[in-house]
Design a binder for these strands. Structure first.
Lengths: 327, 327
DNA sequence: TTGTAGGCGTTATCAT
DNA sequence: ATGATAACGCCTACAA
C-alpha cells in the first residue's frame, strides 16, 4: 500500500508551499506559469488526488448530488427513471459530480431523507424526478435554500424553480397527427385521472390536435390508474365507441389496450408513451422522450447554480415518435 | 437557515465536554446512563447529525459504497441490474451506508474509476455486478486490499473473494423439470456462446436435467449473443429439429423464440430467464431471481468485512419459476 | 467517567 | 507571486 500523498507531499516535491499547490488546483491563473508547471508535474508524478473529505470540510461542498431510485412498480415505467439515472450519472461525472442514491416510499419520508443527507453528507444538490401539484418536497427544499432541479415541471408555477421537462402534449400531438395523417378520424385516448400534471398535459395534446383538425373528441377518452390490466379494462369499454385508433398516456396502458383489441377487426392502431423496452419488444409504436438529453440539461442547470451562481431558464425538450407496427 | 449544529453545540447544551458527546455516539457503553440520556436528549432537541466529512477525515471511512449503473443495452436485461440496485440502496441505507453510482464502458475504464473514487472519495467498498473469467477488476481490487463483493461468482476460483449469486443451473433445471412434468420430451435450449460463466451454468442445468431424466439433449441447443433478433433467428433454425419446448438463457432470447414459433403448431412452449417486466407484460413464463435478497446479502457480506472485520461464506441463492401462459 | 490537547488535509486570510 | 497561519468538525490518545 503506497504512502498517502497529500498536498504537503506535492509541495515538498515541487519545492513550494502547500498553499501554492492549492492555488494551482483552485486558481491556476494566479500562479506563475513556471511554478505551475513544476507543481503539475509533481502532481502527476506522485499521482496526487485532492482528498474530498478535507476539501469538503473547508468549502462545505461535497460535489455530491442525490437522486432517488424508485421501486420498480410495474417495472415498465421504471425503466424511464433508470435510463434517466444512467444519463445523469454520466453527465454529472463529466461535470465533476457524483450521484448518490436514496429511496423513499412517500413524500414525508423523502423529506426526512433530504434532512439526513444534507446533515450528514452535506449534499450539494438534489435531482427530483416527477413533480406533483403542491409538491411538499420542492417547497421544503426551496424554503431551506437547497439547490435542486426537477425533471418534470412545477405545475403550479412554472418559474418556481429550475426544471427540465419533456413536452408531453407535443408527444401526444405527434401521435395524434400521425394517426390523422394515416386517415384515422375516430382516435381515442387512454389516460390518467384528471389532476396529475403529466396526465393532463398528455391528454391536452391529443384533445387539441383533434380539435384543430376539426374532429370531435367527445366520448373518446377514458381515465384510470396506470397499469396493463387497467388499460385492457378501459379499452374494452372504449371499443363500444368504435375508435379506429388509440393514443395512450403510457406504454403500460397501451399494452393493455393492445390486448383488448387483439382480434378486433378492423385492426385498431395503438400508440404508447415512453418508448420503453417493452414497447420495442412487442413492436408498439410509442412516443419517445430524450432522457439522456434531459439528464444532461439537469446537470447543466445544477452546475449553473452551483459553480457559477447563476440560475438559467427552464428547459422544455421535444419528444419524437418511435414508429413500429402497431400504428 | 439554522445555525450549524456541531458536537460542541450539543456538548454545551448537555453541559458536558465534546468528548463525552463523541463517546455517546461511538462508545455509548462507557458513558454513565444519566449523562448519556442527557446527551441524547440534546442531540434530539438540536437535531444534531455527525458531519460525515469530519468523521471521515479522522476515521478514513466514508460510509459510501460504489455500484455501477450500466447503459441499458436492449433495455430488457438492464432491468435486472436496476432491481438489484434498488435493493442495494435500501439495504445499504439500513446498514448506514450510501450507494454512489458510477458508469464505465469497459474494464480498463472501470478500474480507472475505482482509482479515482478511492483516491478522492475514499470509498469503503465496491459492489460489482457480473463477473467474467479472469476478471481484471477483482484482481485489481484484491491486489490493493479494497473490500468488495460481487453479485456473480468468481468462476475461476470460488473462494477468491466474497460473492453472492443465484444458482442459474438450478433455474434452468427448474424450467426443464417443469416442461418434463408437462409431458415434453424434445426440450431445446437457447443460450450464449460457451465460455461465459453465467451462460455455461444455465446451459448445464438444462442439459443435466434432461440427462437425468434419460432424455438425449443432443442437437437441441443453439448459442448466440443476447438479443431478441438473435433469439428469433436461432429459434427458426431450431424448429427444424422439432422441439416441443425451449428453455432460454434470457428473456430477450425467449421473446425472440416466441416470435419464431408464433403460428407453429402444435404450440411450442417457451420459458425465459430473469422474469423481467417484459416477461410479465407478454405472459412469458420465466425463471425469477431473488434480486432484493441478493442485494441484501451483498450488504451483509460487506458490513461483515467493514464493520466486524470478519469474512463470511459466499451465498448461493435459489431462483423460482414464474409461471405464465407460455409454458 | 469526564475533560484537554492535538491533528486529519484542505482552503481562506493575511502578510511578505 | 508566494508563503505562514488558522480553521472546518470530529475522534483518539492521555490526563484528571
Amino acid at each position: 500500500m503506497a504512502e498517502k500523498v497529500t498536498i504537503a507531499t506535492v509541495a515538498r516535491h515541487a519545492r513550494v508551499s502547500r498553499q501554492t499547490v492549492s492555488n494551482v488546483l483552485n486558481s491556476p491563473h494566479i500562479v506563475r506559469q513556471e511554478t505551475r508547471e513544476r507543481v503539475e508535474q509533481a502532481i502527476a508524478a506522485l499521482g496526487y488526488r485532492a482528498n474530498q473529505a478535507a476539501r469538503q470540510m473547508r468549502t462545505g461542498r461535497s460535489r455530491l448530488i442525490a437522486a432517488r431510485i424508485e421501486p420498480t412498480r410495474d417495472g415498465i415505467n421504471g425503466s424511464v427513471l433508470d435510463r434517466f439515472l444512467h444519463g445523469l450519472t454520466e453527465t454529472a461525472d463529466a461535470a465533476g459530480y457524483r450521484v448518490l442514491l436514496y429511496t423513499a416510499t412517500d413524500h414525508d419520508r423523502e423529506i426526512a431523507t433530504y434532512d439526513d443527507l444534507l446533515g450528514t453528507y452535506e449534499l450539494d444538490a438534489f435531482v427530483l424526478v416527477g413533480t406533483t401539484h403542491d409538491d411538499p418536497r420542492t417547497a421544503w427544499l426551496t424554503e431551506r435554500g437547497v439547490p435542486f432541479v426537477t425533471f418534470g415541471r412545477p405545475w403550479d408555477a412554472l418559474d418556481a424553480h429550475p426544471w427540465v421537462d419533456v413536452d408531453g402534449a407535443a408527444g401526444t400531438a405527434l401521435a395524434t397527427r400521425h394517426l390523422l395523417d394515416a386517415g384515422h378520424r375516430r382516435i381515442a385516448f387512454l389516460g390518467w385521472p384528471v389532476g396529475s400534471g403529466v396526465g393532463d398535459d398528455r391528454r391536452a395534446g391529443w384533445h387539441d390536435t383533434l380539435r384543430a383538425a376539426g374532429v370531435d373528441p367527445t366520448g373518446l377518452h377514458r381515465e384510470t390508474e396506470d397499469g396493463i390490466a387497467e388499460g385492457e379494462r378501459l379499452m374494452r369499454d372504449l371499443v363500444a365507441a368504435g375508435p379506429t385508433a388509440v393514443v395512450c398516456a403510457s406504454d403500460s396502458l397501451a399494452l393493455g389496450a393492445l390486448q383488448a383489441v387483439r382480434g378486433v377487426h378492423p385492426q385498431v392502431s395503438v400508440i404508447g408513451f415512453d418508448d420503453t423496452p417493452v414497447a420495442a419488444a412487442v413492436g408498439l409504436t410509442s412516443v419517445s422522450q430524450p432522457l439522456g438529453e434531459a439528464a444532461a440539461r439537469c446537470v447543466d442547470l445544477l452546475t449553473g447554480v452551483l459553480d457559477d451562481d447563476q440560475t438559467s431558464a427552464p428547459v422544455l425538450l421535444q419528444p419524437s415518435l418511435a414508429l413500429r407496427h402497431t400504428a
